[in-house]
Amino acid sequence: MQATETDPRPGNGTGEPGPIPVVLTINGTERRLEVEPWTTLLDLLRERLDLTGSKKGCDHGQCGACTVLVDDRRVNACLTLAVMLDGASVTTVEGLAQDGQLHPVQDAFVEHDAFQCGYCTPGQICSAVGLLKEGRARSDDEIRELMSGNLCRCGAYVNIVAAVRQVMDGTGAGR
């Protein structure tokens, strides 16, 4: 068992309640952490665990750049308090590739040029993985609708939808 990791930052001195212990499985590894009650999952990932793949785009749950999977369900990590996730399993973009092999959605994003600046990409990919698990989308229209919470300012949507579609149909050419 791992030693408990405490918040390394200097005390905030605001007299607010102290850290709370939580156990999270992050990308397959169990972590015992003490987190302030107001720490979001996104801040925990980015600031404490050095998992900077998930991005902070708007910090309001409206752009989707921070999308990660919690127990296979896609959530906005910026709106999810870490303490609410005690016992949960979190998968970030860093945890999708297995044994050096990209996840099929990652492969499809490369194959279809489904990004430009790349800032929304980790969120898009986690969202797509979640969508595929949900099994709700059948048509391009449904993909567009059910991916509409993930903004891409570069406007790479055509290729994003094509990439998701390819994995959904299992027609990936592979690389």
């Binding site: 793949g53 970030t92 973009v93 990209l102 994003f109 490369v110």
Partner: peptide, 15 residues
């Protein structure tokens, strides 16, 4: 593909 394609899809591209 974009030069950072693999970095982007794995979250390893650093901003």
């Amino acid at each position: 593909p974009h030069d950072s394609a693999e970095l982007h899809v794995t979250g390893r591209a650093r901003y």
